[in-house]
């Protein structure tokens, strides 16, 4: 009885181990592709692999990562993986692209659990909400919704999600400023 159970467990774990070995590489590749894909979406052209030397920093109890995109040694922009815990459905993760002068180029949502049809409009594919940030520099573009006296047009009936989005972008900007200094 024990022998049979032991044998079955052995065979199964061997099989799982084998599959793990085989898939380890594609999984890592898929993760890399996702990150570099997101980076490519938010910063202008570059010829290095920004995912190779990320700079991680712990801020407000979460981990943020800064990827530097260069072309011919010249810095083309920064992609900051940022987060906020203020979302309606908890954590929202964004990839925010900055140009060297500190203005925002593009923003992509990496992970969000906002209400479908309302808060999930922060995603570029669902509404144009995120477009209003493009080309703005947080230095003179106040990153909070109009209701709170900022410059951001909130999503209708989703003030909380909009606010959280601003919070994440602002956190990314602040981190970038401290690093650049």
């Amino acid at each position: 009885m024990v022998v049979v159970l032991l044998l079955i467990t052995l065979v199964c774990s061997a099989a799982v181990g084998l599959v793990y070995k085989v898939t380890a590489e594609p999984i890592a590749a898929a993760k890399d592709a996702k990150i570099s894909g997101a980076i490519a979406l938010v910063v202008p052209t570059f010829d290095n692999n920004p995912a190779e030397n990320p700079m991680t920093k712990e801020v407000d109890g979460g981990v943020m990562t800064v990827y530097t995109a260069t072309q011919g040694g010249q810095v083309m922009g920064y992609a900051v993986e940022t987060f906020t815990n203020e979302g309606f459905g908890g954590t929202i993760k964004l990839m925010v692209g900055f140009l060297p002068d500190g203005s925002i180029s593009h923003i992509e949502v990496i992970e969000q659990k906002e209400t479908p049809g309302l808060g999930d409009k922060i995603d570029k594919s669902k509404s144009d909400f995120s477009l209003q940030f493009e080309g703005k520099s947080p230095a003179d573009f106040k990153l909070s919704v109009r209701k709170d006296g900022g410059d951001v047009d909130a999503i209708t009936a989703s003030t909380i999600s909009s606010r959280a989005y601003c919070d994440a972008v602002e956190r990314a900007y602040n981190l970038l400023q401290t690093i650049k200094r």
């Binding site: 049979v4 159970l5 467990t9 199964c12 799982v16 999984i27 898929a30």
Partner: peptide, 26 residues
């Protein structure tokens, strides 16, 4: 011991499917 055996077998297949999905349909 049939139930533990079944569960081990099922769990292994689930893990295999999970890894495959992670790799090819992330």
């Amino acid at each position: 011991v049939r139930i533990p055996c079944f569960i081990v077998v099922i769990a292994s297949f689930v893990t295999v499917v999970e890894l495959l999905m992670q790799a090819f349909v992330p």
